[in-house]
C-alpha cells in the first residue's frame, strides 16, 4: 500500500479533507489535533517560501522525508494544498497528487452543493478517491 494518508488544506490553512488509507495506522487522540497539524504545516510552508537565498519565487516545501514515510505537498494556483503521505518506496507521487487534484476539481468544484473553503462532504468524491487510490501501486 503506497498512499497512507491524504490531507487537503484550504488557502487559509484550514483542513477541509482528511482521509487515511493505510491499514492499521495510528490515529491522533483528538480530531482537533488534525486541524492543528494542518495549520502548522500551512505556516511552515509559508515560511519555506520566504527562506530562499535566490532572489526568485520559491514554491516552498515540496517533500518531507522521514524514516518511515514521506510527505508530499502540491500547492495549486488558487492556494489549495494537497498533502499526500506515502511510504518511502512510492514512485510517481506527482502524478498521484495531480490526479487527486483532478478528482477534486471534478467531484467537488462541479458540485452545486459544495461551499468554497468548507469541509468536503461529497460522497462521489469519496468514492472516486477510494477507487483511484486502490489502483495506485
Amino acid at each position: 500500500m503506497g498512499v497512507l494518508s491524504i490531507f487537503i488544506l484550504s488557502k487559509a490553512g484550514g483542513l477541509i479533507y482528511h482521509k487515511d488509507f493505510g491499514f492499521g495506522l495510528k490515529k491522533l487522540n483528538n480530531s482537533n489535533d488534525y486541524l492543528v497539524i494542518a495549520g502548522t504545516f500551512h505556516s511552515v510552508h509559508a515560511l519555506t517560501t520566504r527562506v530562499n537565498p535566490l532572489n526568485t519565487h520559491s514554491s516552498g516545501l515540496l517533500t518531507m522525508e522521514m524514516e518511515t514515510c514521506t510527505l508530499h505537498c502540491l500547492q495549486t494556483l488558487t492556494g489549495l494544498k494537497f498533502v499526500v503521505v506515502t511510504d518511502n518506496n512510492q514512485s510517481n507521487v506527482s502524478v498521484v497528487s495531480s490526479t487527486i487534484y483532478e478528482i477534486y476539481s471534478d467531484y467537488v468544484m462541479k458540485n452545486p452543493f459544495y461551499t468554497l473553503d468548507m469541509p468536503i462532504r461529497c460522497h462521489k468524491f469519496d468514492r472516486a478517491l477510494n477507487q483511484y487510490i486502490s489502483t495506485v501501486e
Binding site: Y107, P112, F113, C122, K124
Partner: peptide, 9 residues
Amino acid sequence: EYISVPRDM
C-alpha cells in the same frame, strides 16, 4: 455525474 446530493435533500 459530478453532483453529490447532501443527506438532508
